[in-house]
Write a protein that binds this DNA or RNA. Structure first.
Lengths: 197, 197
DNA sequence: ACCATCTTGTACCGATCGGTACAAGATGGC
DNA sequence: GCCATCTTGTACCGATCGGTACAAGATGGT
């Protein structure tokens, strides 16, 4: 049956859609842009996403969510080696955001009023990221209170690094700020005595 | 002559325009929204801003630029008491961004592709902010290299705090992150010996 | 080969987009 | 009061918006 094909092609389109939403925002992403980027006509687009732009964005956000869940959040939540886990998070995030050239869609839509429709999703994205990172720090022996605070600061700092890097057009700025966040995390981990034998 | 009136009313409109651009972005800010927000018809709008939306945005950015220049940048650049200067910056910024409820327009337009037309302005906004803050730290005796790094981190951190606070819909998150930035600045200042008598 | 299903391009919808034209209405110097 | 200037609302422009309708074209089970 063609169920498989539907899902496959839909999934293929999602990443192209994501890039358009990233670059132009929800309101700025016109159907003609979305159509051009995916190589699909309006007919196909509305066949895959009967709900129109909103459903496309929803699919994109779900895709992002699942990528982060498996690549970023889960490793943090189940970290055996916290230092390695945060280092790997930093590397993955740097690659994902292309050193700040690529915008964080979740952060972006939270900024504009059109993002109100996706508030639950954007909220849970950040809440889960912060709590996963905090949990990782706690695994390393950092007390809950500073762990939560540091995690919040780092996730916030990553978003800031993207804004700054885009605004000044300088990837190096992103890398410098992210490096500081990395150091903050490692310092917090190192400052606590290893809790194992 | 009516030159005075023109400038006065134009200036009045700018703040209303700014709020629309903030909330909807450049592409999402339609002329009807801008007209409604300012209380001016299309005729008046194009009388004041013959260049259309682009000129409106340019005027808004110029307005923001001058506000930051006098309220934020200048005090940092001429600080006699660095600790007081950074504290006052934090307070002004917190009030300006309404504890994260209000978005940073300069940061926002840097994120979307429509902001390319204003790249020079967004770039200089951040560059000057960072260098003013770095200069203030140097005045306090912080060596240039860490001063620049800390300044960059703090300005970036403020942007991140806005993104985070908007996304999770929690002003407290903004205040917590900003408080950390404040502490970072004060710690850097306190760590260096006072260079006066 | 046949047919039901899925997929796609095209034409089209009303609404709204950013922007222009312009005439009527305020304003202020004289 | 008069007239030049400035200001403003309204009507209108072509283009594009998001979205729908639908017929022609794959596709695949049987």
């Amino acid at each position: 049956m063609s169920v498989k094909r539907v899902l496959t092609e839909r999934a293929d389109a999602v990443s192209a859609l994501a890039e358009v939403f990233r670059e132009h925002g929800f309101e700025g992403a016109s159907l003609s842009l979305l159509s051009k980027a995916t190589g699909l006509g309006k007919g196909s687009l509305y066949n895959f996403f009967p709900g129109g732009k909103e459903e496309m964005m929803e699919a994109v956000l779900a895709d992002i969510d699942s990528w982060f869940a498996t690549t970023i959040f889960a490793p943090l939540e189940q970290a055996h080696d916290p230092a390695a886990a945060v280092t790997s998070m930093i590397e993955d995030v740097t690659a994902y955001f292309r050193s700040g050239r690529r915008v964080c869609l979740v952060g972006c839509i939270g900024l504009s009023s059109s993002g109100a429709a996706f508030a639950i999703r954007t909220r849970s994205y950040f809440v889960r990221w912060i709590s996963a990172l905090a949990h990782c720090l706690e695994t390393a022996g950092v007390p809950p209170s500073p762990a939560e605070r540091i995690a919040e600061e780092v996730v916030s700092g990553i978003q800031g690094a993207i804004v700054l890097a885009r605004a000044v057009g300088d990837e190096a700025a992103f890398l410098r700020v992210i490096h500081r966040q990395h150091s903050t995390l490692l310092a917090a981990i190192a400052r606590t005595p290893p809790q194992s034998a």
